[in-house]
Design a protein around this nucleic acid. Structure first.
Lengths: 222, 222
DNA sequence: AGTTTTAGTGGACGACTGTTCTCTAACATA
DNA sequence: TATGTTAGAGAACAGTCGTCCACTAAAACT
């Protein structure tokens, strides 16, 4: 207790690399937090982010050239988490029948755990600053493709064309996006509405997949 | 030519009511135009809107208490147009087989014609200012319900429960929204990509409806 | 040890914001 | 024609914004 050897006054002694990491993360977190609180991305300012991170505005420039660059990093990070989710779902879900319910559960668990990231992505998806919007669209397209190749492994879909698989994957991702938006709209800890959203999502996905057996790429032309 | 009786210097003589109407519309149009140009709603300012409308900032207050109120009016107007579209589609499309293609065509035609309104709604749907976001969500829910009661009239769906109809309608509306967003992302006059988006939308909707005959509200429990 | 690198401070700038006030000139009404 | 009404102008305010610059103090390197 009485020992010391390095007893800094409240402000711990840190290596410079670590300090840098912490400040950078504080900036990212501050931005994320403000977005979760309802602000749209381009409604928040460099100054307010720096302020919330407990840092003077000029320090911001040590890490990002501006808010745009910070936004791009945030997008990258968020989609890394999303990819983790997809991988998780891939390994977990194998039983073909309960697959939809499992997937929805995983999705919801991830939204709960990474609410800020999801809120950020959802907000920015349709919001200003063409650069960021474009980055998101690209990531989502990638996401759809990954899901499509996943689906290709299912026996029922083994004969589908790539194009049809993309179609199906796109439809499922659309539903997932709508689900996430509904979740984010609901209060953060409203268990009942959350359960209902989950139910709706699962039923919608089921409605999609029941059509799969009767699907023919180019249905007998009228 | 030499006649006059009321020769104002370029600025035509207008009745006051008409003048008021014009300025108000100029403000709405200016806001809409800036949104179409990529800005998110809460990135644009009262001053810039007034400026673009050719009016001094203070004149703005004669019509709206602030940007929020203008936003609400814009939402109302946009959804009036959307409802018009739905009515149009309802009267037009009767042949059950070509129905999907017809609907998609109508949707695309409407997006072309009312691009600004759609861009506005799409942008604001996931963007700041809880009030406006909530207003949009409400309108969309209403939209889904209208579509559901429309669907109820179809013979194949006559026996479906209300809940299932809402489910199906929600799914279709989700697809429509995704389609609109894709259209807005594409350049305003890119015929080829537009055609492809239309094709994808139609195919996705078809994939949904082919599942309809095999749907049972609560599928035989596992 | 002394020197260099660097994370963060603090002040200042010009531009833009929302809002409030007073004032003018065109319209409406009688 | 004289009166009231109203759309819009214009100036001014207190804030906030992004960005630049010179500076300090702590860590890293030699």
């Amino acid at each position: 207790m009485v020992d010391d050897s390095a007893r800094a006054p409240a402000r711990a002694r840190r290596t410079q690399a670590e300090r840098r990491r912490q400040t950078r993360q504080a900036l990212l977190d501050a931005a994320l937090l403000q977005m979760e609180a309802g602000e749209s991305f381009d409604a928040l300012s460099l100054r307010s982010v720096a302020r919330a991170a407990g840092v003077v505005p000029t320090a911001f420039y040590r890490y990002f050239t501006g808010m745009d660059e910070l936004g791009l990093v945030l997008i990258e990070d968020s989609f890394r988490a999303l990819r983790g989710m997809l991988r998780h779902a891939r390994e977990e879900g194998r039983a073909p029948e309960r697959m939809i319910e499992r997937s929805v559960e995983i999705l919801i668990a991830y939204v709960r755990a990474n609410r800020m990231q999801f809120a950020f992505v959802a907000r920015i998806r349709s919001t200003g600053n063409g650069v960021l919007r474009h980055a998101i669209r690209t990531e989502i397209r990638l996401f759809v493709s990954e899901l499509a190749t996943d689906l290709a492994r299912l026996p029922i879909l083994s004969e589908w064309t790539t194009e049809d698989l993309q179609l199906l994957a796109g439809l499922l991702v659309n539903t997932m996006i709508a689900t996430v938006e509904a979740l984010l709209d609901a209060p953060p800890d409203a268990a009942p509405s959350e359960a209902e959203i989950a139910r709706t999502a699962a039923r919608q996905m089921r409605l999609i997949v029941v059509g799969v057996p009767s699907w023919r790429s180019r249905p007998a032309a009228s």
